[in-house]
Simulated assay, not measured.
Amino acid sequence: MKLLGLLVVMLLLPLSVRAQNETMPDLSTLTVTGSGHLASTPDTAFVTLAVETAGKSLADAQRQNSRVMQKVVERLQALQIPKERIQTSSFTVSPHYRPLSKRPTAPPSAAPEIIGYSVSNSVTVELHHPEQAAAVIDESLTAGANRFHGLHWALRDEQPARLTALKQAAATAREKAAALSGALKVKLLRLISAREDSQVVRPQSHMARSMMAMEASADAPIFAGEVKVEATVTLVYEVGPE
């Protein structure tokens, strides 16, 4: 008998909870989003350059590449750039094949004939004095670099700028909430949730350029511009009548 009574209570309990939930009113909420930003002068630059060489054998192409890259690194170190801030960003080897049009007697199923190799070695240079960017490009070109893969600017420590932008965004969101609640004749009861997002917008010059293009613009001025940190904050408030 006791077991039967317990089963009845267990069956009725979900119905009781559901009835209570149905009688509870939905929360009235107000959602606002604020934005903030901070522009800072970059204190770091990254320059990516490459040396490309070709040879009839892989060993020959690698030997030429190593010799030229060593000259590039020596020029960079002469600018007082520590070796640990000169990092290989990519290293590729590409075989060259004889075109089928120049192999009239070869059957269609013949294996490709390798006639040479290209080696490309790219390095990224981290500069803690961004004004050195032009000198780095010029000295690398003089030493034998023949590709320019990009230049971009950054902040070594982005956290202070992110926090400042987030504070601005949160303050703007609160001001919006106060203005809207006053206009709508409702009262802000409590903050239910807060969501934040931030991003860094970096000025950059990203392009692949040949040695000829680099020589044509070697004396062109380079301007760092500003690094912008943008943030948004979304606040959700419970509201009620005044």
Score class of each variant (00 low, 15 high):
162 R>V: 15
163 L>A: 07
149 H>Y: 09
159 Q>Y: 05
163 L>C: 02
3 L>Q: 10
181 S>E: 03
13 L>P: 01
212 M>T: 14
156 R>E: 14
173 A>Y: 09
57 S>H: 03
8 V>S: 11
114 I>Q: 09
65 N>S: 07
199 Q>C: 03
181 S>K: 10
139 E>T: 03
101 S>E: 15
229 V>Y: 05
77 Q>V: 04
198 S>Y: 13
239 V>A: 08
19 A>E: 11
108 P>G: 08
185 K>T: 00
115 I>F: 12
129 H>Q: 13
123 V>E: 06
124 T>L: 06
191 L>S: 01
149 H>K: 14
223 F>G: 07
132 Q>F: 04
91 F>P: 05
116 G>R: 04
144 G>V: 12
152 H>E: 03
235 L>A: 10
219 D>W: 10
226 E>R: 15
159 Q>K: 06
84 E>V: 10
115 I>E: 15
55 G>I: 02
214 M>L: 15
196 E>P: 00
119 V>K: 04
14 P>K: 07
213 A>K: 09
83 K>P: 01
237 Y>M: 02
234 T>M: 12
16 S>I: 15
218 A>F: 03
120 S>I: 09
222 I>A: 12
174 R>E: 15
166 L>I: 12
64 Q>T: 08
132 Q>T: 01
27 L>I: 00
194 A>I: 04
102 K>F: 11
108 P>E: 14
111 A>Y: 05
140 S>F: 02
8 V>A: 15
85 R>H: 07
59 A>S: 08
210 S>M: 06
232 T>G: 03
238 E>R: 12
167 K>F: 08
23 T>L: 14
203 P>N: 02
58 L>W: 01
163 L>H: 06
61 A>F: 07
27 L>G: 05
20 Q>I: 10
227 V>K: 08
135 A>D: 08
